[in-house]
Design a protein around this nucleic acid. Structure first.
Lengths: 219, 219
DNA sequence: ACATTTGTCAACGCTCGAGTTGACGGGCCG
DNA sequence: CGGCCCGTCAACTCGAGCGTTGACAAATGT
């Protein structure tokens, strides 16, 4: 993420020093900055948000940000990476559980909703922004993030295929299309659902699982 | 859309002249420019795309664009407005049909998919970009577009409520949540589905209707 | 008491991209 | 032929925003 080489500028040297002997205070403040960046990115969009905006909320000058972070891009990467990796790991855990495909999918659905509720601005930014457009350098990073997303999708697809194989899910529908449909249902929430308003996490999960497994038509 | 007042610059005067006596050649070339803008916006995102990028594809100089269009923003608005208004009108037509709620929703689903296939770059841009972030002036326009989207959603929600009322759809799920779920399924396609590759429009429509009405579980 | 580190910020450089100007070639019409 | 519009573009202004510098006060350590 942070290149160890090419420590060009003065602050970048001081930043790397502070980073490497990782004081608790420093780390905490850096984390706080990233938290705030996520909020601002969510509100204005990565491209539209300026470091000035972020610094203002952070309560300091734009120049000071560089004491914690090398660039606007790094700020973005820090917002995405943790939460995405965490989700993939959690999904992998669910995929390995010795439970029915239906139960697996239920847990995966629950995971995605919970993640959006718990890590609201982060997940919003992750879902909304296009990695490859935002990150100009370090295209390798963008590729890795896209791969992570594909991995996430695959857990859904695999669970579906499993269910088709054991007869608990209907045959004849493309597992990829079904998985993408479900994924859309889950991720699109970022556009209309603000955690803590009107609907509860449980309501969302319950509605989406009911809809996905059994459909809207009366039985 | 184009302000009749404040005809400041030289080209803007010539543009408005050309616009008002609307020659066929001029209109055609302007439409072509908008078509190309949509393609570039889709590829790079509104913020990242430059007028240079667009001009290059258009095969002319950046300065020449202003003969057809007042600003980058106007280019964006032209991309969105037509297709959105068209969709709302089409959905309104479907909503008034004397058919079952299920049939209505089927047609609405089909409409959204068809629209994305037929007007690919336009719909992509419409779905991906956030009106309120892109349009800085003319917030009134952004508001109108957001309202149009709400109107679109309402046709889905109303059809669902109708079906719940007449017993063809299950009770106990929030119509709003269900509608949003379906909407997500339909709109998220823009992220993974490129028309003309791998899956046909019919396959998408069939899979999504099957999934939405009857669910994935075996009956 | 003195040196060093820590966090900060005014000020600057620099690039990039939007919008404007003024003019020029080429076609069209009198 | 001579005037005129049409589409174009080289060249400019201008503002925004990122990244850097160098220095300064306060805290911290010796």
């Amino acid at each position: 993420m942070t290149q160890p080489l090419a420590a060009a500028s003065r602050i970048s040297q001081r930043r790397q020093a502070a980073l490497s002997d990782g004081g608790a205070d420093y780390s905490a403040k850096r984390a706080e900055l990233i938290r705030i960046a996520a909020i601002v990115f969510r509100e204005k969009g990565y491209a539209t948000a300026t470091l000035n905006d972020i610094a203002a909320v952070f309560g300091t000058d734009r120049a000071s940000l560089y004491y914690y972070v090398a660039s606007k891009e790094e700020l973005f990467q820090e917002c995405i990476q943790n939460i995405l990796d965490t989700n993939v790991a959690a999904a992998a855990g669910i995929a390995e559980l010795p439970v029915s495909p239906r139960e697996k999918l239920t847990q995966l659905i629950s995971l995605m909703i919970a993640s959006q509720v718990e890590h609201y601005p982060y997940m919003y930014v992750y879902i909304q922004e296009d990695m490859r457009q935002v990150v100009s350098q370090d295209a390798e990073w963008a590729t890795r993030m896209v791969e992570q997303t594909h991995r996430l999708e695959k857990f859904f697809r695999d669970a579906i295929l499993e269910g088709v194989a054991d007869g608990s899910f209907r045959d004849g529908l493309s597992a990829t299309l079904v998985a993408n449909g479900l994924f859309g249902m889950l991720l699109w929430t970022h556009r209309w659902y603000v955690p803590g308003t009107k609907y509860s996490e449980q309501e969302l999960t319950a509605t989406f699982t009911a809809l996905f497994f059994d459909g809207l038509a009366t039985p």
